[in-house]
Computed example of a mutant assay.
Amino acid sequence: MGELDEEAMHDSEVLPAERPNPLVIAAGITARGGVLWLVVAGLLALAGRPATAKRALLAAAVALPIGHLTGLAVPRRRPRTSMPARTALPEHPDSSSFPSKHAVTAAAFGTATALVDRKAAAFVVPLVLLVAYSRLRTRVHWPSDVLGGLLIGAAVALVLTRV
């Protein structure tokens, strides 16, 4: 897996080395600590979907500490790079790279939304994917960190749906 992660981090058409689009940078910054999902939940509630907003926020709120605890249990160094893609971020996180907490929270919110409200999911899922991509594009996570985060977040939302 480490070799695949290393290969994916090189300059390519999918993950260019130059500075990312401001929208990609903004997705990563606003999703920090789940702030983006608070705003999205507010928009869902204003759009007449308060139950969806509550369920999605609950999933994200449960998933975030699970992501942090997993990071403590599975310490992993972050990719080291000085590419413009990485230096575009105002933050330079040094916590464990696995899992991507941004991806954990995004996937929990998006999966919970998709399980209860397909129309709202059409709006939310692209944001989830943008946040996940932002973590790769800005080189703060290995691809397996983001994939692991997406899987953990989705699992949390699925478990909560059954509880």
Rank of each mutant, 00 (worst) to 15 (best):
Ser134Gln: 00
Leu158Ala: 06
Arg19Ala: 15
Leu127Pro: 10
Pro50Tyr: 15
Glu13His: 12
Leu129Cys: 05
Ala114Thr: 05
Leu38Gly: 02
Val24Gly: 10
Val39Trp: 06
Ala27Trp: 09
Arg86Leu: 10
Val131His: 02
Val24Ile: 14
Arg78His: 04
Ala51Thr: 12
Ile152Gln: 03
Ala56Ser: 09
Leu64Val: 08
Phe109Ser: 06
Gly33Glu: 07
Asp5Phe: 12
Ala132Leu: 05
Ala61His: 06
Arg137Ala: 14
Ala155Ile: 04
Leu38Ser: 01
Ala132Asn: 01
Lys119Asn: 10
Lys119Trp: 05
Pro22Lys: 07
Pro90Ala: 15
Leu89Ser: 13
Ala120Lys: 05
Arg86Asn: 12
Ala17Pro: 01
Leu4Cys: 04
Val159Thr: 13
Arg55Lys: 11
Gly34Cys: 01
His68Cys: 03
Thr87Gln: 09
Ala45Thr: 08
Arg49Tyr: 12
Val140Ala: 03
Leu64Phe: 14
Val74Met: 14
Leu43Thr: 03
Val140Cys: 03
Arg139Ser: 10
Trp37Met: 02
Ala31Asp: 11
Ser96Pro: 08
Val156Gly: 09
His102Lys: 09
Leu127Ala: 02
Leu23Ile: 15
Pro143Val: 00
Gly33Leu: 04
Leu36Phe: 10
Tyr133His: 08
Leu46Asp: 13
Arg32Ser: 10
Thr70Glu: 12
Thr87Glu: 10
Val128Leu: 05
Ala103Ile: 02
Gly28Glu: 06
Val131Thr: 09
Ala85Thr: 04
Asn21Pro: 11
Ile66Thr: 02
Leu43Met: 10
Val116Phe: 05
Pro79Trp: 00
Arg32Asn: 12
Val163Phe: 13
Ser82Met: 09
Ala51Phe: 13
Gly42Val: 01
Phe109Gln: 08
Phe123Glu: 12
Val159Ala: 13
Arg162Lys: 01
Leu36Asp: 07
Thr161Tyr: 11
Ala51Val: 09
Arg19Leu: 15
Ala108Arg: 04
Arg77Thr: 13
Leu46Pro: 03
Leu15Glu: 08
Lys54Gln: 11
Pro84Cys: 03
Pro22Phe: 15
Asp5Met: 11
Arg86Phe: 12
Asn21Cys: 11
Ala53Met: 07
Gly33Tyr: 13
Ala112Ser: 10
Thr30Tyr: 14
Ala60Ser: 05
Glu18Lys: 02
Gly153Cys: 04
Val104Ile: 05
Pro75Ser: 08
Leu158Arg: 06
Pro79Gln: 04
Asp11Gln: 09
Pro79Val: 04
Leu4Met: 11
Met9Thr: 13
Ser97Ala: 15
